[in-house]
């Protein structure tokens, strides 16, 4: 276990280093959520400002801030498998597979890197939100709980994306499925619109949409009183999904090895 933890650390450092060496990627990863927040904020403000759900938060941009954090997490992690497919093609994955590195550490290192990238993006978005007038009345604890939930959500989606990459070995497939999944999951949640404004069927779907669980936890951070029971319930749901997805991705690695 201790050896596995050390391997996980070294793999995470490697993945992060290779991320940081792509300055274009780093800039895009920070600018993109900022643009979302500012553009969507401006675009929908005239429509949404007066609805009770958003009015309570002060402004639509403030309302949108936790939503954009969630959107960024799901978007970034959905693409995670693309990097793995590239490394497969470079022979890098096989090079690691013939070393004694623990199989779980190999995948977990990639997930940890993705989680750290998303955390950096989230902090950046939250800061921009603050500069646009967002105040996190719920306190530091709920904010930390939100970031923890976001990490679980990232682990879940990045695991699935990596599993998909391991099984299909195709950039195109990973990208196509990520794109196919991410937007519907975002629109079937309260990222853009408060629950009361959604059509009834959409609201029903949102109840079982894990992305929405994350958004709900995030919204608590800007409201005055936090309902911790809800936070805990949603958080446990995300934990369960993250663990199940991670387990699936280790299975996918076994499927990959059968076909090497």
């Amino acid at each position: 276990m201790r050896e596995g933890a050390a391997q996980l650390y070294h793999m995470t450092v490697r993945d992060l280093r290779s991320t940081l060496r792509q300055p274009t990627y780093v800039v895009a990863a920070l600018v993109q959520p900022m643009l979302w927040l500012l553009l969507f904020g401006q675009l929908f403000t005239p429509l949404m400002e007066t609805t009770p759900g958003t009015a309570a938060t002060g402004s639509y941009t403030v309302f949108l801030t936790p939503g954009v954090v969630a959107l960024t997490a799901v978007f970034a992690s959905g693409w995670s498998g693309v990097v793995l497919v590239t490394e497969m093609e470079q022979g890098l994955l096989n090079r690691f597979l013939v070393t004694p590195v623990r199989r779980w550490a190999l995948i977990a290192g990639r997930l940890a890197q993705q989680a750290i990238v998303v955390l950096a993006q989230a902090v950046f978005v939250l800061l921009i939100g603050v500069s646009c007038g967002a105040r996190f009345h719920g306190g530091i604890l709920i904010l930390l709980a939100f970031l923890a939930a976001m990490t679980l959500c990232t682990i879940a989606f990045a695991s699935l994306s990596n599993a998909l990459g391991l099984i299909t070995r195709s950039h195109q497939t990973v990208v196509a499925i990520a794109q196919f999944m991410v937007l519907p999951l975002a629109f079937l949640s309260e990222i853009f619109v408060p629950r009361e404004e959604m059509p009834a069927w959409m609201s029903a779907v949102a109840t079982v949409n894990p992305v929405n669980w994350l958004v709900e936890i995030g919204r608590q951070s800007i409201s005055e009183d936090v309902e911790w029971d809800d936070v805990l319930g949603r958080g446990c749901g995300l934990l369960a999904i993250a663990l199940a997805s991670f387990w699936l991705s280790t299975l996918a690695l076994r499927v990959y090895q059968r076909q090497v």
Partner: peptide, 23 residues
Amino acid sequence: AQQGGGDPSATSRESLTLQGRLY
């Protein structure tokens, strides 16, 4: 391996060090 397996963004010192650490 036939394919190699060098990490294009890493240096050779980093790659060798990581390889050693995995062992």
